[in-house]
Nucleic acid binder design. Sequence first.
DNA 1: CGGGAATTGTTGAATATTCAATATTTTCCT
DNA 2: AGGAAAATATTGAATATTCAACAATTCCCG
Lengths: 164, 164
Amino acid sequence: MDQAKSPNIHHLFQQSFPTVARTPSTPITEHLAYLLAQANREINRQLDARFKKEGVPVEQWRILKVLSDGKGHSMGDLADAVLLNHPTLTKMVDRMVSDALVYRVQDPDDRRKVVMFISDRGKTLTQRLNSLALSQEAHIAENYGNKATADLKRLLESLIEKAN
Amino acid sequence: MDQAKSPNIHHLFQQSFPTVARTPSTPITEHLAYLLAQANREINRQLDARFKKEGVPVEQWRILKVLSDGKGHSMGDLADAVLLNHPTLTKMVDRMVSDALVYRVQDPDDRRKVVMFISDRGKTLTQRLNSLALSQEAHIAENYGNKATADLKRLLESLIEKAN
DNA sequence: CGGGAATTGTTGAATATTCAATATTTTCCT
DNA sequence: AGGAAAATATTGAATATTCAACAATTCCCG
């Protein structure tokens, strides 16, 4: 590899600055994508820490929460709702079925489909997880501010909506 | 599975509502953790799509971008900066070394450490990636609004700061 | 009706990530 | 000084995710 000369035309204009002077370019920390990743990671980490004593990953809580409306949900709907792609969801649901948290029923109206339901065991677990999650939200709202939290949520919703 | 009776004491108070009346509990879509995950996923997906023609995952762009300051960075610093845990970073850097985008040097002051540098090949790639990323940011700012984008960034920064 | 195309979900192989253990070097403490 | 503890990075095994292929069913259109 030739490490010799500056590969872009900028160096023509940089000769008067002898030492360094590379194109500045926005630091990674100012990119929206990065800020979202960082915030998401941190909040998720905290939530996971709270869920740890129940031994349930955040994704399973999402699944349980969606199913707690009591209605049946197809795998496809679930996958969209919980932000998982299909094969990942299938395998996670397999585990949850083993743990008797949810169960599958074949949709009688469309036999390609599977309809997922939450079990009673799943329901009681969901309640414990919900209160852990709520306590986290309360904790955030506490030292981040109610207004800021509400504003942030609103902006995120709007971003998500626009992004489609 | 016994789906028969409501498992919590609430049902004592719900007897006057004969039909259903389960505890409402916030829908998943109102939780901050979920909104962050969703927004992050979507923005990342879009960025990945743009990077696709370069065949570079977003994480590698982050690494390249951090290293483009020309200074050397230890693996630990890098891992923090690019939101990857150490073993994952090690293996990703292995690939990038194979691709001659970055290289390792042992830190002479502390021989436990490795100092990472970006190669010239890495620099030119970074420039192409930067402009793809900037065009995405521009696209977002365009149909989401400059104010909203700035507000969102500010709120995210503040959340991240508070969360530590 | 019949059959190709589309939809839905799962599987298996390939890939990536994570956890725990390890190796190496430095720091700290007495 | 000298040895235990901490810091840094990597490795290998276990686990998880993804991609592509598949199977089953339904849809659609001629």
